[in-house]
Write a protein that binds this DNA or RNA. Structure first.
Lengths: 202, 202, 202, 202
DNA sequence: AATGAATGAGTATTCATTCAT
DNA sequence: TATGAATGAATACTCATTCAT
């Protein structure tokens, strides 16, 4: 009874949690944080309020789960980019675009996380590892570029850090300034970094 | 008769507004946004709740004023840096440190502004001008460096933009990762940019 | 499945709304309008404040419902009188007494309605129809009296209008002057109208 | 010192009270009762809030004074009608119109009076005397009509009472139903009463 | 006498959470 | 397990009244 029943039960729980999590993201994206009410989420997910409390201890718990789901999505993107075999310069462009897209999609969740103080629930080491992982993806691309004699031999970690800082700054400003900002400024970022990295002008 | 009486009255109002604004920042800084209650602010400012409503129409109005005060503080810092006559490399370092300090000091106010949707009360043009002003300060330093034959002749606007993006990214990560992050990483930023800018290693 | 469950749910809602409405009338009747606080109503109805907001969007909405309930009560009285088969003169007396009683019972609700501006939520046509309905009840009685050769052949609509005006005036003055006014003056009204209507002195 | 100074002072007080009272009526007429704030009244009267409290103990006191002013205005109208020497039928018409106009003008004050419970500050005897005075004015007109052999010899007090009730009812319905109601229905009232009173059709 | 800034008790409303069915 | 009505603590905001100038 334990194995099969438990598996099935666990699976059903997983699915319920995901459905509720997605409903929460929907509500968040549609409205502002103030409107992230348990009622709205329940309605969007098509379950009763009580049901949510069968899966999550409280609102903060639900939000923490939502937050983790967003990071799973971001990390899936990163994995795809690491395993991509295109030209390094092209991969830099793709990284910029794809990571921006996924962060923009979930920007409200990420913005929320700050004020909710959810970050205090995550061990610093885990947060640092998450940041380092982002940096390593770019570093890997730059190393490939150097190995292929396409990029100059610069400090790969330092440059990758700068690239991450720039990306975060760009996302922040996009949120602040509005719709058309990224489209224009991402070109500047590309120009600056590829100019810096490439041995010969493309 | 009108002028003096009116002046005095206006002055008293200004002072009251500033005192309340500072109390609001205190409460914000000490706790999280959830604790930005009118009661707390009133208590901190040492006035009655009703008094706040003599000066601000509602909570949003008060917060908008607080937000503007923070920008006044930031812009005063920028002005001081523009008028500084030190060595350009040193001014880059100072810019990084000083702007970071003031942003870190008011980081909660800035984070709050996002979710409150206060940004929608500011005309896009004004927001763009504010960003451009930041960029121009760095640009001015870089131009001085080039004029003094200390910096390489690079695209000053593009480089200044990147510097701003990096600074914002750094502040975001500092907020995310905690106390000691900036101290370490600001060295990386300095190293990267001064390496890029300086004609000869210092 | 839909029908029964929905019916039951709807019934429960109806009962809750009525209970709250009656509590509001109680509070109103006991004190003045200033004491029509949501707290008082909740306490009187034996529910929590929040429960009221599960059934009514806000205080105005609740009051509008209360107001409608009062009109339902008045109209039930009217229906009973229309279908009554007594002697017309007796029915005039009953009309005067019964309508007065119900209006007196709910006089505070009706007085309230004026200042709350609730009347602006009711279409003018509906209000006019409500008034016309009252007039028609008396008219019907007078017509019966004429048909039975007990009343003089006067303008039935005009006389019924005057009767309504008098009734309203009487209720107003009762509110203004206090407890014993109606008992005495309703005799005058009876005397005036029956004198005017009856072919031979009773 | 006592006589002249006291007189002057008393006069100034009278004027201040009247000015504030008129401002209150203005605010009431413009907005609803909810907006009858001491601030609004002070602004409208062109004085400081504190000044109002030099003349009236509190808001209720002010309102009581306002209420009395309205009755002074109504009674002045009544006096003018009593002393008028026109044809009795014409005076009935004028009474209907003039009293309606002045009541309509101050209807909000009168409506307010109910809920504020101001009536409890007025001795019942005074209220009854006020009502009786209204009735006596009509009675006087009817008596004149009978003396001039123009009206039938009916019960003058009873008929005058009915006329007052009708007038009050009409004002109530005008408030409830809106602008055009009185213009139309006052014709019905005229028709009914003059028909009842006049010996020969006019 | 006049002023009006300061006061703070009082009120409507929201929403996460519980628990009986 | 799912449900959703009931709960009530918490919070923004109003406005009559006071009192130092």
């Amino acid at each position: 009874m334990d194995t099969f029943y438990e598996k099935q039960k666990s699976l059903r729980e997983q699915m319920a949690k995901l459905a509720i999590s997605e409903a929460a993201i929907d509500v968040l994206s549609a409205k502002s944080y103030d409107s992230l009410t348990m009622n709205d989420i329940a309605e969007k997910a098509g379950v009763a309020i009580g049901t949510i409390y069968n899966y999550f201890k409280n609102k903060e718990d639900l939000f923490y789960y939502v937050y983790e789901q967003v990071h799973v999505a971001i990390e899936e993107k990163l994995d795809a980019i690491v395993n991509n075999q295109d030209d390094p310069a092209q991969r830099i462009r793709v990284f910029l675009k794809e990571v921006f897209d996924v962060c923009d999609k979930y920007k409200i969740v990420l913005a929320m996380a700050k004020q909710i103080g959810i970050k205090d629930r995550i061990p610093v080491e885990q947060k640092k590892e998450r940041v380092a992982r982002h940096i390593r993806v770019t570093q890997r691309i730059i190393e490939d570029g150097i190995a292929q004699k396409k990029f100059r031999e610069i400090d790969t970690w330092l440059t990758s850090e700068m690239f991450l800082f720039v990306l975060i700054g760009l996302i922040e400003l996009q949120t602040f300034l509005g719709e058309d900002y990224f489209a224009r400024e991402s070109k500047s970022v590309e120009k600056f970094f590829l100019n810096y990295l490439l041995l010969k002008e493309e």
